[in-house]
Design a protein around this nucleic acid. Structure first.
Lengths: 195, 195
DNA sequence: GCAAAAAACTAATGCCATTAGCATCATAAT
DNA sequence: ATTATGATGCTAATGGCATTAGTTTTTTGC
């Protein structure tokens, strides 16, 4: 009873599918095996364990998010690009809540993986910020701030903290992003003007 | 072999102690029992289960954080109060990283508990914002934004996303908070001036 | 065709939370 | 003082989980 056409890639794909479906960043080897119609221990022919697998899923999720961010800012400049990036980030969280959560549950992962994920996501941000004429230190500060705002907002929204109040969450997000852009302009003005 | 002086409160206290010590928001009934020098099933005489206990720990953590925020803003106004609140929030996360994480891992909790926790933490923020003369909608938006910035920053810092870059994390936090205050002033100016 | 590697299986280990049922002790009522 | 009751502890058992060991079967490379 061998050869069911299962490879590391097939396992990874199924894991992603399950996380997308359930919307939670947790994986069960048992359920994974069940869906692949094999017994649980057979999974270990393809992956080292559940953490190994989760690391791969995290990498995949970060790459997907990165792609969306890059696509969103392609051909745009300045505030347009920033707004597009913020919108794409939120869309990703809305459409792929499970994957989004995975990118933020890096605490359990080896540090090398979390650094890798951090870089994948911060690069599109640096790309946009590069048009504001900040020096290197300021770029890093403002990259941190943008990620904080976006991730902070999305994770609180996802946690349901905004639910018990009828006020538009989208509008709040606009306020947050607009606040950031204003602050960024004020900072950039200290160096030289930006269009 | 009965009566070891264990009550629900003693269990809760030990749970908090363990979470503080390990810095992670997870509880093991086995380890908890071991530290209390009883057998695991005996815990069930005092708590319904691990989720029940975690809900209580979350409540406790939120109350502690709330106290710190209220103390920080006591007697302060406007930007002073905002800066103090932001500083106290970060101090709490630094000094009680486990408890801080618990307040943010509400996903697993019943919604009633997460709403309760959300309210405990948002009230000090509304208190500070009330001095800026915003209308009710704007207050809610800006409360959401402040929590997003603070929580987003602290959770990314905690996740180690800022570690691989030598630039001062404290300075980045100042940039974030300053950006928020600037934006808030711009918004408030639309209504009337604030001192 | 055959040897070796790959991939599936069964069986077993050990961790965990939780439940059931029993024993013991403190206390309050008789 | 004695006895009933309830609270608190225990042991034993269940069932879920990830993981490992060892075996069998199939594919693949020569």
């Amino acid at each position: 009873m061998a050869k069911k056409g299962i490879s590391r890639d097939v396992v990874l794909t199924k894991a992603v599918e399950m996380i997308e479906r359930t919307g939670t960043p947790v994986l069960s080897m048992r359920e994974l095996a069940e869906e692949l119609k094999i017994k649980t221990p057979s999974l270990y022919n393809h992956v080292k364990g559940v953490n190994d697998l989760l690391a791969d899923v995290s990498r995949y999720a970060a790459e997907e998010l990165r792609k969306k961010l890059l696509m969103a800012i392609a051909g745009k400049n300045g505030d347009d690009a920033l707004n597009a990036l913020a919108g794409a980030y939120r869309n990703f969280a809305k459409e792929h809540i499970g994957l989004y959560k995975v990118t933020n549950s890096v605490s359990a992962l080896p540090k090398t993986v979390s650094v890798e994920i951090g870089t994948l996501i911060s690069e599109p941000i640096f790309l946009v910020l590069s048009q504001y004429g900040l020096d290197e230190e300021q770029s890093i500060h403002w990259q941190r701030v943008l990620r904080s705002i976006i991730h902070g907002f999305l994770s609180q929204e996802e946690a349901g903290f905004f639910q018990h109040c009828p006020l538009s969450v989208e509008a709040s997000y606009q306020v947050a992003v607009h606040c950031y852009i204003e602050g960024l302009h004020t900072e950039a003005r200290g160096y030289h003007n930006v269009g």
